[in-house]
Computed example of a mutant assay.
Amino acid sequence: MKFSEHWEHRHREENEGSALHVTEGVNGQPSVNPHFRRKKRPALTTAQYVEGILAGDITVLSQAITLVESNLPEHYEQAQEIIERCLPRSGNSVRIGITGVPGAGKSTFIEAIGNMVTSLGHRLAVLAIDPSSERSGGSILGDKTRMESISSNPDVFIRPSPSAGSLGGVARKTRETVILCEAAGFDTIFIETVGVGQSETAVHSMVDLFMLLQISGAGDELQGIKRGIMEMADLVVITKADGENIRKAELAKAQISNALHLFPEPESGCRPQVFTCSAVDGSGLSEIWKEVGDFIACTRRNGFFTSNRRRQNKYWMYETINEALRNSFYRDPDIEAALPDFERKVLGDRLSSFVAARKLLDRYFGDIRREK
């Protein structure tokens, strides 16, 4: 008898009748419903996708977003055509990016202010970006569960998406998702970012207002002086200003307000304001939403709203080109065949990473030149 089998036999004898005893399972049990067969959902045509989105069909909208986020080459062309057809019906919303350090209460804040926004007659789409594991690539996607009170609201659409390795706190296809949500009739878009701190600035290139959530007692003076995410903020909110934390929140508000005055005049022409709020008792939410309206009105008057949208479209164009080139490069048969050998040489210190990259690029663009 093998050592492992002997040990298992001895363990069963010693623990027979005790709480540690584990009953052996029974193999080969039938399904609960042996007659159940999962039906494969029929694929929709491009026209059906567009028709459903423009009609405000949430199910079709969700399927279209999944198609857009897909990495499969066969989905790419159809996704691009859907986006192109929806573009004329987009652009009529207010896009708000909401970021902050982990623990600042982004989801709780969005749930509280989302209920208020819909009560004012708006239709709200919440694009929640969850961090993806570097090891497994998976994401929890639990934002919809945390926003329990608005997840059943017919005027709210919540779409959690994995960051999937994208930097800057957003997902790879967040811009495209915004277009589809606007075409579906949502006039207010919240983009809740991953919440990783100072590097989370990519969302700034796709929103009309960038809101930063802060908590008191987190190095407020030093954080306020830092460049990066703080100077990009159009509105700063100190959350969890309730109970015994009210005094600390007011102190943090004063410190951050003083720090913001050290920054030069923002390009929008509207100097950012600092507010305190509590998502638990609802205090401060109406003032924050009023400031959102005032900021959008200010940027529309001075022309920054339109010029910012145009600049973002230009940025999106270059991002689309970069992604297409990257996908084309890695899907090139010659590059796919050569990569493993170059990787082995780099790992074996027989070739520098710089030289390997240059040789692969020369090979790829050399093939393109020869084709021309």
Rank of each mutant, 00 (worst) to 15 (best):
Ile158Thr: 01
Glu267Thr: 15
Tyr76Glu: 15
Arg38Phe: 11
Leu209Ser: 04
Thr306Trp: 00
Gly100Gln: 09
Thr177Pro: 05
Ser205Arg: 09
Ser151Tyr: 00
Ile158Pro: 01
Arg12Trp: 05
Glu134Met: 14
Asp281Gly: 10
Gln48Tyr: 04
Gly165Ile: 14
Asp143Thr: 06
Gln80Arg: 13
Glu323Cys: 04
Leu351Tyr: 07
Lys240Cys: 06
Thr108Pro: 02
Val101Gly: 09
Leu339Cys: 05
Gln80His: 09
Ile321Trp: 09
Phe295His: 12
Ala55Asn: 10
Arg85Met: 08
Gly224Gln: 06
Ser31Ala: 15
Leu251Asn: 05
Gly197Arg: 06
Ile225Arg: 09
Phe305Pro: 03
Tyr49Lys: 06
Ser90Phe: 01
Leu251Ile: 13
Asn308Cys: 13
Phe295Ala: 01
Arg41Asp: 13
Asp130Thr: 13
Gln255Arg: 12
Phe305Asp: 08
Glu250Asn: 06
Phe190Val: 08
Ser62Lys: 05
Ser139Ala: 14
Asp367Pro: 03
Arg247Trp: 07
Lys173Trp: 05
Glu192His: 11
Cys277Trp: 02
Glu343Asn: 13
Trp289Phe: 14
Ile288Tyr: 05
Ile296Gln: 02
Ala218Cys: 09
Thr201Gly: 04
Gly103Val: 10
Pro34Ser: 05
Ala104Met: 03
Pro162Ser: 00
Phe342Met: 15
Leu44Lys: 10
Thr118Trp: 00
Arg310Asp: 08
Val346Ser: 07
Thr188Ile: 15
Gln223Lys: 12
Met317Ser: 12
Thr306Val: 07
Gly138Pro: 00
Arg175Gln: 10
Cys86Phe: 04
Thr177Ala: 14
Cys86Tyr: 03
Arg172Lys: 13
Arg247Thr: 15
Val170Gly: 05
Ala279Ile: 07
Lys144Pro: 02
Val236Gln: 04
